[in-house]
Amino acid sequence: MKILLRFTPEIIQEPHIAEVILETGAKLNIDRASIDAVSGEVVIDVPDEKCDKVIKLFRSRGVVVSVLEHPIVLDEDECVQCGACISVCHIKALSFKEDWSITLDERRCNQCGACITACPHRALEFS
């Protein structure tokens, strides 16, 4: 499952992710991170079975946690099913269905954002 962590300036200096990994033994994967001196946003991929534990632990440490049900949203009204987004996605989260309409495998998407700029119709956005 994809989880978005938000760090406030007060806690940003502490090694939260490392400690959560050590404590839970969960194999976390960092998909995306934007961190500066005062705040940070990190998207991690957590194995489903350890999800609850990991979320609880982050919350207890003051990290703001939100579960990303839909990492990327597709605006059906703007999308023309052109597929320009497909080949720029390195993890093959986007593909054609049988009828040549586009489909997004949300579980695979790691929010790299490549498809967002590649879409000529501004049909994709981070949620």
């Binding site: 099913q81 497909i86 080949s87 720029v88 093959k92 054609f96 040549w100 309409s101």
Partner: peptide, 20 residues
Amino acid sequence: GVIELDGKEVRTSPLSSFFM
């Protein structure tokens, strides 16, 4: 969805819409 280039599989994107 893929073509071969120099022995490597390369993913393709149509920029036109077949659906449309």
